[in-house]
Design a protein around this nucleic acid. Structure first.
Lengths: 332, 332
DNA sequence: TGTTGGGGTGGGAGCGTTCCTAACATCTCG
DNA sequence: CGAGATGTTAGGAACGCTCCCACCCCAACA
């Protein structure tokens, strides 16, 4: 472990000068070029790396952010987190992974997030408002993938309405007019997708038949693939045996869509010849369906990029105003 | 931000005493019970939380570990990481998520792991030996899910051989004798599964026919679901049209198995009536197949638990000896 | 020649902890 | 009743760093 004083001694300068050279990003602040070069050389020769703890203690910022995530095994979440790590690193920040459910267990006071982390990303779509407000009091918070909320925190989300709209446009262009929906009443993202579905349908001049929609009341656990899959499977079985079944189905996410596809195939029908099925999220499961699923791609990379950018801006400017970014998805 | 001196002042003691009370885990070291209780009360009233940076600077340990992971979007990896976070937290450690690929980009000198993190988990099955040895020089390293390696690092892995053995036992009990295999030549886990397959087959007194095996040379990227899926799909299509096709297939992982199942169904055959298909990993995709896949469950939770335990032991005892743990999977 | 000014540099305090050492109080026993 | 043992507490240095402040030197100017 080589310290800055050792570097300074070897370079024949004081630790102040060494510090000045080593911490200055670009704007030189009055240090002779030769001195700077010398310090730089010695530092890299000795393999000097600043001690995170000491810097953090002194400057009162750790360049550490926490990512509060619930259900990392959810494919879309894991892709989002993966992208977020990269985006943060690119800006000189490291990411601390904190599970969310733990807060529900404990006194949910957020105290398990160590003092010293600069900011917190809350990623997922399950909202714990109490925790959010508490966290926002002492730290910068950026919500990723959450539904819009009225709080002084940064927010990045994908545009569900636009995604649904794109999907339904696509389906009507294929000639469908009887378009059903399968989803759940919660979490909020699914709820929003359903209302977007209703909304877009009326815009397109189509009627929504109640018997073409299945919105389950049971709230699936995050990351619980099986129950989502079987939700789609059962709902689809149900829809297919009814009179006058829909010719196309919009699903609230890919897992549900996979279930729906399998159910359709199990009854002997063809996808997409007999029924068109559209998913949402462009998660890995979408690639595991055969035939491949049509799906709305959540823009994980640009979401992560925006979130990280928003965080550094929040941290730099201390701007507490609630900034919101909505990103458009793409149809695959 | 409330410091320990403020707590001490309010409690009417010196900061030393406050520190003694607050840091002592259980074994009381000579502080009067009433004093301790008083300090405790004041601390919790004021919402005192020790400053991570200061503690880290002083004690020279941060209670921070880095998880070097490649391909978080791989379902088994994300489940493993999720479990690892929990296991670490339970032991008072926080987990820093670091992408792996970044090291390949940069000078792969591991310098992006901030000074101060106590230990590094390397999770995945893609081995970068150079990086490993370099890391192991200055830090405690625990390998999770890696193939066994001869280095002074902790190692936790699942028992591939046993898993394959269990699966093949199961298949033979169902009456199969013509058991094929689909996999790839890399990463090492797949390679090991194939050799386990050959091994177990001969133990069972069965012959391995070359035309029943497909071991692809192309190495799939971690987290690349599509290529694994299509690998399984194509290989299975191939196997089914051959003369005297196998009646059962052991796949090197779940994604491949999913592809194989879909390919079988696409040709009009029934699973498992006509062909039995077995996966490996018990990843979410296994639940998305219809009919549900038989699979070998990787014991992610116990792997994470062992890895975390091994890390704290390594950190505590400074024991550099290479400890290895093999954990048995379960058949689902 | 004395004064100013500014570029370049060193000294040192202090960030919030932990922990070593010394001091003090109380008790035990010869 | 005093020496030593024991238990409890306070003081202060140190961890590695940043940054404020003071300092020095030399050119420029009066």
């Amino acid at each position: 472990m080589v310290t800055i004083v050792e570097v300074a001694e070897r370079a024949g300068v004081s630790k102040s000068t060494a510090s000045r050279v080593l911490t200055t990003i670009q704007g030189r602040r009055s240090v002779r070029p030769e001195t700077a070069a010398q310090v730089m050389k010695v530092a890299s020769d000795m393999g000097y790396q600043a001690n995170l703890m000491a810097v953090g203690l002194k400057t009162r910022q750790s360049r550490l952010c926490a990512a509060l995530v619930e259900g990392l095994s959810d494919p879309i979440i894991s892709r989002l987190v993966e992208a977020l790590v990269l985006s943060c690193n690119r800006r000189g920040y490291h990411l601390l992974l904190e599970p969310y459910s733990r807060f529900a267990d404990s006194s949910r006071d957020g105290s398990t997030i160590p003092v010293g982390v600069d900011g917190v990303f809350m990623v997922g779509e399950r909202a714990d408002w109490a925790l959010l407000y508490e966290l926002a009091e002492k730290r910068k918070v950026v919500l990723v993938g959450w539904p819009p909320v009225d709080a002084p925190v940064g927010q990045v989300s994908d545009d569900d309405h636009k995604g649904v709209s794109m999907a339904l446009d696509h389906l009507t262009q294929l000639g469908h007019s009887q378009i059903g929906f399968i989803g759940a009443a919660r979490p909020v993202s699914m709820q929003r997708r359903f209302s977007a579905y209703l909304n877009v349908l009326s815009r397109l001049g189509l009627v929504c038949r109640e018997q073409h929609c299945r919105v389950e009341e049971a709230i699936p656990e995050p990351g619980d693939h099986e129950s989502l899959f079987s939700l789609g499977f059962c709902a689809m079985e149900d829809l297919l045996v009814a009179d006058d079944p829909p010719t196309a189905i919009m699903c609230a996410n890919d897992l549900i869509a996979c279930g729906a596809v399998q159910a359709t195939i199990a009854t002997g029908a063809q996808v997409p010849e007999d029924v068109s099925i559209c998913g949402f999220g462009d998660t890995p499961p979408a690639h595991l369906c055969w035939p491949p699923l049509t799906t709305v791609q959540t823009p994980v990379h640009s979401m992560a990029e925006s979130a990280a950018e928003m965080m550094v801006k929040l941290l730099r400017d201390g701007d507490a105003s609630s900034e919101k970014t909505l990103l458009s998805p793409r149809l695959i």
